[in-house]
Amino acid sequence: MSSDEIGAESTATRRTVLRAGVAAAAAAPIAAGQDTAAADTEPAGTQTGPARVPLKVNGRLHEPELEPRVTLLDALRERIGLTGTKKGCDRGECGACTVLVDGRRIKSCLTLAVMQQGREITTVEGLAHGERLHPVQAAFIGNDALQCGFCTPGQVMSAIGCIEEGHAGSDAEIKEWMSGNLCRCSCYPNIVAAVRQAARELR
C-alpha cells in the first residue's frame, strides 16, 4: 500500500498497450508473473477483455484468464478452483467471502480480481500446515463455533484479521469488529468464544 511498491518504470509502456487488444494486454501480466520481483510491484496496467491475470494465492502464483469484470471471489472459486471461500450474498453484506489481501481482511465479492494483481491473497485453504490447523480454525472446532459451516471460512478469515488488528481485546470489541460476518445459524456466542480463545493463544 505504500508508494515505494509502485513501479514507476512501467508508466512509459502503459499507454502503448492502451486498447491494443487481448494479446498485448495478456503479455504484460505473464511477463510480470515469471519474475517474482516484478510481481511484487504495482505495475500500471490496461486490460480490455480476457487476459491472464497473475494472482498470488496462498503463496502460489496463478494466472487465470479473466475479464476485468470478474470479482476476486469468482476468480478464486470458479477459475482457480479454491471453493473454500464462500459466495453468500455477492454484494458485501454477509462476509462469507472474506479473504486476506496483504494481511488485511476484505470482502472478495466487492473487489475485482484485476485490482489485486501482485497482492498476497490468503484464503481458508492457505491456513493449515499439513494436518496442523491454524489456531483460529482449531478454536472454532474447539468451541463448536459453527453449525452448517457455510459462513465459517469467512468467519475464520475475518477473525484472523480482527486478532491481527488488535481488535479482540474484549467480547464487546470482538462483537463489534466481527460484525461484518453474518451467521444464519446464529452461533455468535460460540464464535466470540473461539475468537477470544484464539486471540489469547496468538498473543
Partner: peptide, 17 residues
C-alpha cells in the same frame, strides 16, 4: 467468451489518471 464489460486502467500518476 463474450467481451462485454469495460476496459480496466491502472494509472500511477495524476497526469495519467
Amino acid at each position: 467468451m463474450p467481451t462485454t464489460g469495460f476496459t480496466y486502467l491502472r494509472p500511477l500518476t495524476v497526469a495519467d489518471l
